[in-house]
C-alpha cells in the first residue's frame, strides 16, 4: 500500500532497490579506487628493489626509507632538522606575507600608494627570485638571512598580487551601499573591502606556501648546517640514498599538510560562499 503511494514520486529509487543495487552512489569505493595507483607504484618499487632491478644506491626501496626515517626520528636528528626547516619557513613566510599584505593593501586602497608601489613591484615580479641567490649571497652572506630572504621573496609576490587584485575587484556598488548605511572609510575597509578581498587573499597565501617551500628547498642546499635540505645534501655526500628520498618525502608531506590546513581554514572563513556555489 505504501509502495503504491510512493511509487510515482520516487520511481528511480524503487527500481534501483528492486534490482538490489546500491541505493546511492557512495564515496567509499571511489576513494579506494583512487588509492589503487599510488599503492601499486609503491608495491612495484619495493618489489623491483627486492628483485635487484633497482640498485639501492640509485633508489632505495620504500621499506629502507621508512626504517631510516624511524631511526632518525628516534635518535632525534630528524626532529631537530625539521624544526629548523619549519622555523625558516615560518619566519620567511611571515616576513614576506606581512610585507606583501601591507604593500598590496597600500597599493589597492590608496591611489598614491598604487602609483608609488605597483609599477615597481610588477617589474620586480619578473625577476626569477631563485635566480637571485648569487646576489643574495653577496648581500646577506651564506647564513640564515639567505634562507629566510629567499622564502620571504617567494611568499611576497603571490600575496602582494592577490591582495591587490582582491581589493581592486571589490564591487563598487557594495562599498556605496555601505556608505548609505553610515559606515566611515575605515569601517568600509573592515566590513566590505577586506572580507571581499579574502577569497583572493587565500589564493595568494596558498601560492605563497608553495613558493615558500620551493625557496626553502633551494635555500637549504646552499651551505646549510641544519634543516631537511642539509640532511639531504649531507646524505648525498655519503651516498645514503634512503635519507635523500626521506628528505624529499618530508618536503612533499609539508607541502601537502600546509595546503590541507589552508583549505580547511579557507572553507571555514569563506562559509558564505557555499550557498553561492550551490545557487
Amino acid at each position: 500500500m505504501t509502495a503504491d503511494v510512493r511509487a510515482p514520486a520516487l520511481p528511480a529509487e524503487r527500481t534501483r532497490s528492486a534490482r538490489g543495487d546500491r541505493p546511492r552512489r557512495s564515496p567509499g569505493p571511489r576513494r579506494w579506487r583512487r588509492a589503487v595507483t599510488p599503492v601499486l607504484i609503491v608495491v612495484l618499487w619495493e618489489g623491483a628493489a627486492r628483485l635487484g632491478i633497482l640498485p639501492p644506491e640509485k633508489l632505495s626501496p620504500p621499506s629502507d626509507v621508512l626504517s631510516v626515517g624511524l631511526r632518525l626520528t628516534l635518535d632525534g636528528t630528524l626532529g631537530l632538522h625539521l624544526l629548523h626547516s619549519l622555523l625558516r619557513a615560518f619566519v620567511g613566510l611571515a616576513v614576506g606575507g606581512v610585507l606583501g599584505l601591507a604593500l598590496g593593501a597600500l597599493a589597492g586602497l590608496i591611489r598614491l600608494g598604487d602609483d608609488l608601489v605597483d609599477p615597481t613591484v610588477q617589474m620586480a615580479r619578473m625577476l626569477p627570485h631563485l635566480g637571485l641567490v648569487p646576489l643574495l649571497l653577496i648581500w646577506v652572506g651564506i647564513g640564515e638571512p639567505l634562507k629566510i630572504s629567499l622564502v620571504a621573496l617567494g611568499a611576497f609576490f603571490p600575496i602582494y598580487l592577490n591582495t591587490y587584485t582582491g581589493i581592486r575587484g571589490i564591487d563598487e556598488r557594495l562599498v556605496e551601499a555601505a556608505r548609505t548605511c553610515g559606515l566611515s572609510a575605515a569601517a568600509r575597509v573592515r566590513h566590505v573591502v577586506l572580507p571581499g578581498a579574502l577569497p583572493s587573499l587565500f589564493l595568494g597565501v596558498r601560492l605563497a606556501f608553495g613558493a615558500g617551500w620551493l625557496s626553502l628547498v633551494v635555500g637549504e642546499q646552499v651551505n646549510a648546517e641544519t634543516g631537511i635540505g642539509f640532511l639531504m645534501m649531507e646524505a648525498r655526500d655519503f651516498s645514503q640514498t634512503d635519507v635523500v628520498v626521506l628528505g624529499l618525502l618530508i618536503y612533499a608531506l609539508l607541502g601537502m599538510l600546509s595546503d590541507f590546513g589552508l583549505r580547511v581554514a579557507e572553507r571555514r572563513a569563506l562559509a558564505w560562499r557555499q550557498g553561492l556555489q550551490a545557487s
Binding site: 556598488r173 557594495l174 556605496e176 551601499a177 555601505a178 548609505t180 548605511c181 553610515g182 559606515l183 569601517a187 566590513h191 566590505v192 572580507p195 571581499g196 579574502l198 569563506l270 558564505w272 560562499r273 553561492l276
Partner: peptide, 25 residues
C-alpha cells in the same frame, strides 16, 4: 536617510542579521 537600490546590494559575507545591523548604532 535610507537607500534601497535596484539590486539588493547585501554583503555576501555577512548573514542577513549582520547585513541589517551594518553600521547601526
Amino acid at each position: 536617510t535610507g537607500v534601497v537600490f535596484q539590486e539588493h546590494r547585501l554583503l555576501p559575507w555577512k548573514r542577513v542579521t549582520d547585513n541589517i545591523a551594518l553600521g547601526l548604532r
